[in-house]
Each structure stands twice: as structure tokens, then as C-alpha cells.
């Protein structure tokens, strides 16, 4: 870790002013990812602006049935909140599927949006990485790619986004509110993260001087939703594949479907192709399989992550089947 200076922001305004004037500053929320990356010399801020005491910790019901979640709400508080548990079970399950109890007590919603990839080569200074050092190449190509993406990847970067929460948020049409000294704007969650293309170091739509202040969830299309995470051990591991799904069925026909995938793409992957196939289709295993096939049709893989394509298909089908058959999920 490099030596850095630390300031604690007493209010949002000061936080925004500080980040606008310091060229190499970082906001510190729960620190569960930033501090790790600083220890590994991947993140090297000169100034760390501690925002953890800013009043962005509310979970409030919105007119129309949505929910507004403050950027500094801790993961554990989010997962336990009655509004979240009853209206958006998929969000609660996604959060509880991630990290450990200790980390969830620290990690924040805003920080979760900005989690960086777990690519082994991104973490290793001796390896080439276009994300860490633009133009240096990608050692992951031809290397260990078990936790890498199969959708939306490029020749420059095949890293996967590691967040669980973001997958659920992507499925639910969440919007992110960001603020800077220039003003406030809203970004749909599905547009918040960028695909790598030829600039994998540009990971989000967030400008360097902007602060995530809240995430808004619209009223749910259905409260029948769930998160399924498949990984290499029972707990405390990143997803190989995860599925966030919400499904509404009337007269054996799908009337609403929301689907997003984790662990398979450089961003939380909203499965729009699968949703298109599902909408109006009979609620059967065959339809689920067709939807999964459609979504994964454009997948490309390496030796080490080829299995993810079939695993993603199967996990989509299994999650939808569970939503269909398990009435208690409602």
C-alpha cells in the first residue's frame, strides 16, 4: 500500500468539493474492495475521502410503490429491511449470497456498484492487464479463466463483474442517482456499467468527480423473485454463474419476466433476449430452455470458462422452474 492522505467529509457538499479539486482522490465507503485493492497496489489514490458518515443511509418508500436506497446503506441492513424482503426478495437474497457477515456489515450499496473484477491477472502486478494498465495486453487470454466472462467480452478484456447485488438491481430496472458540484443526474443501472470494448479501464458511466447518492427501485412487477448463485464452495466465493429472476404467470402463460445474469459478463447482464422469448410464452421448462438458449446464443468462451455457457443455461432454467413451482416464493 502507498502512503496517502485521508480526509473525512462532514457533508455531501464537502465530499463533492474535495473530489472535484483533488485529481487522484477516491471515496471510501465500507472499504471492503477499495482497501483490498490499495493493499495490492492496484488502486493508488493520493487522497482518500471518507464518506462513511454522510447521511445517505435511508431506505424509503416512494409514492407509486418503489423504494429509494441510500448509497451508504450497509449490505446487511439492506438485506434485512422489511420493504426489501417483501417486495424485492431477489435483492435480499443476492446480498446474503455475497461475501461474509462481517463484510456485509461494512459494505455499502454505492460501493457494490463500483466493485472491481476478481480477474487473477488484474490483481497481479506482474501480469499484463488492459484494465489496470491500458495498452499492456491481457494475460487472462490463454490463462486461468474460470471466473471470466462469456458475454459482452472483447479481445482487450474478458473480466467478469463480481457483484451479486448489481445483478438483482439490473433485473429490477433500478436507477442510480449521482451527484457532483455540477449537479445531479440519474443513470439506469443497466447503463451504469460499460462493456470493455477497446477501453476496459473505463468501467462505469460515473465521472471521476461524481458521487453515487442513492439507488431507486421502481414498484416491482411481481414479488415472486429470487436469486440463485452457483459457486465453487457453499459460501464466501464469487459467482461462477448467478441468476436474478422475477416471474409472473397467469393461466400458465408468462405475463412478466425479469432476468439478469452475474459472473458471466463484464457488467451485470440484463437478459433481454431471454425476457423477449419468455413474455407471452407458455410457462414450461421448454420455454425456459428456449429463453436460456436465446440469451447465450452470442456467448464466446475460453478453455477455462466454456462450461459457463451450459451452466448459465441450466441455472436460468432451474431458477425459473423454482419460481414457477415453489408457490411459497411469492
Amino acid at each position: 500500500m502507498r502512503t496517502f492522505s485521508y480526509v473525512r467529509a462532514p457533508d455531501v457538499e464537502t465530499a463533492l468539493r474535495t473530489i472535484a479539486t483533488e485529481p487522484n482522490a477516491k471515496f471510501l465507503g465500507g472499504g471492503t474492495n477499495l482497501v483490498d485493492l490499495m493493499r495490492e497496489n492496484i488502486e493508488r489514490p493520493d487522497v482518500v475521502v471518507d464518506i462513511s458518515r454522510l447521511p445517505l443511509t435511508g431506505i424509503d418508500e416512494l409514492p407509486g410503490g418503489g423504494v429509494r436506497i441510500g448509497a451508504l446503506v450497509r449490505n446487511s441492513s439492506l438485506a434485512a429491511h422489511p420493504l426489501v424482503r417483501t417486495r424485492y426478495p431477489v435483492v435480499s437474497q443476492a446480498v446474503l449470497g455475497g461475501a461474509s457477515a462481517q463484510l456485509r456489515n461494512m459494505a455499502t450499496v454505492g460501493g457494490n456498484l463500483l466493485q472491481r473484477t476478481r480477474c487473477l491477472y488484474f490483481y497481479d502486478e506482474a501480469s499484463a492487464c488492459n484494465k489496470r494498465e491500458p495498452g499492456s495486453g491481457c494475460s487472462a487470454l490463454g490463462g486461468f479463466t474460470r471466473n471470466h466472462g462469456v458475454l459482452g467480452v472483447s479481445d482487450h478484456c474478458i473480466a467478469a463483474h463480481p457483484s451479486d447485488l448489481c445483478v438483482a438491481l439490473a433485473a429490477l430496472d433500478a436507477e442510480v442517482e449521482v451527484e457532483s458540484t455540477r449537479g445531479t443526474r440519474r443513470i439506469p443501472l443497466t447503463e451504469f456499467h460499460h462493456l470493455p470494448g477497446s477501453t476496459p479501464h473505463v468501467e462505469t458511466a460515473l465521472a471521476p468527480d461524481e458521487l453515487v447518492t442513492s439507488v431507486e427501485l421502481p414498484a416491482p412487477v411481481t414479488t415472486r423473485s429470487r436469486y440463485r448463485k452457483v459457486r465453487d464452495r457453499a459460501s464466501y466465493a464469487f459467482a461462477l454463474v448467478s441468476v436474478a429472476a422475477a416471474l409472473e404467470v397467469r393461466d400458465d402463460t408468462v405475463t412478466a419476466a425479469r432476468l439478469a445474469l452475474g459472473g458471466v459478463a463484464p457488467k451485470p447482464w440484463r437478459a433481454t433476449e431471454a425476457e423477449r422469448v419468455l413474455l407471452g410464452a407458455p410457462a414450461t421448462e421448454e420455454s425456459f430452455r428456449s429463453a436460456a438458449e436465446a440469451e447465450l446464443a452470442s456467448a464466446t468462451s475460453q478453455d477455462g470458462n466454456d462450461f459457463k455457457i451450459e451452466l448459465a443455461r441450466r441455472t436460468i432454467v432451474a431458477t425459473l422452474r423454482d419460481l414457477l413451482t415453489d408457490r411459497s416464493a411469492a
Partner: peptide
């Protein structure tokens, strides 16, 4: 890494020992 002999998962985050739930 068979290309250069470098250990790529030198951490307990990426080398998976069993957790209690296992």
C-alpha cells in the same frame, strides 16, 4: 500458470479452502 510458472491465486480469496457451510 503453465506459461511462466507464476502462482496466480496466492490468496485465501481465490484458493478455496472449505468454509463452515461446506
Amino acid at each position: 500458470d503453465p506459461r511462466n510458472g507464476r502462482i496466480m491465486n496466492p490468496s485465501l480469496a481465490e484458493y478455496h479452502v472449505p468454509v463452515h457451510a461446506d
